[in-house]
Design a protein around this nucleic acid. Structure first.
Lengths: 109, 109
DNA sequence: TTGACATATTCCTATATGGGAATGTAATGT
DNA sequence: ACATTACATTCCCATATAGGAATATGTCAA
């Protein structure tokens, strides 16, 4: 088997850095494709293709306004990622304390 | 260009579901490859290969114990993901309230 | 040394990508 | 009807998988 499709879930969709940039820009509000192109400086077809992927996994939603397509982030679809990473929160806080403890022990010696 | 390498960063590495399963299992403590194989039921070479990817992006660390290789999660490497998703937290809370508000308005009508 | 155990690597292949370039489609103004 | 604006889609291609099978490497025990 090959790698899972980018459209298979939010995890795969946001693996692409440009899609993350687009999402973060959309987090500031509804934007047209042209505004995204202007702001991020990607090629227009590239932006459209990335938006399509984001749309398929419901990370964004669209509505038409004349000839403009207005995209907005659907934050709800990012929650699963947030929750998955949260299961490690306890762990990294713990690990940070250990690192600190070792550092302090060293500075004493 | 093709898709970015799975080893290019934590985002790409955790896009693969089996790697997420491995990481979550390792969050419960240090484990040998054999224990991971037993617990998750993947082929041993598959586990080794996934661990290699996780290792390259520093999502796990290893130490040898006799013929066993003991892997552990490095939670610190997951933090960037957590923080990225956190930037949308405000947004989804807001969006949830909107959904609720609409629902209540409807039930009144 | 030999064998058994634990893990890693290599080879193979089907498949999905992301960018570039070109083209298609939809909506508006005149 | 036609030109223009705003997006979307298609075609092409180099590249990186993930799994399966087989094999290599490393460690210990007798």
């Amino acid at each position: 088997m090959a790698r899972a499709a980018t459209t298979s879930d939010a995890f795969n969709a946001v693996a692409e850095p440009r899609r993350r940039e687009i999402l973060q820009f959309l987090a500031t509000g509804e934007r047209s494709v042209g505004e995204i192109v202007m702001r991020l400086g990607f090629e227009q077809p590239s932006v459209s293709k990335h938006l399509r992927v984001l749309l398929e996994v419901k990370l964004v939603e669209v509505r038409r306004d004349g000839r403009h397509m207005l995209y907005r982030a659907n934050a709800e679809a990012i929650r699963p990622l947030h929750e998955w990473t949260s299961t490690f929160e306890r762990l990294w806080k713990h690990q940070l304390l250990q690192v600190k403890a070792r550092a302090e022990k060293k500075s004493q010696a």
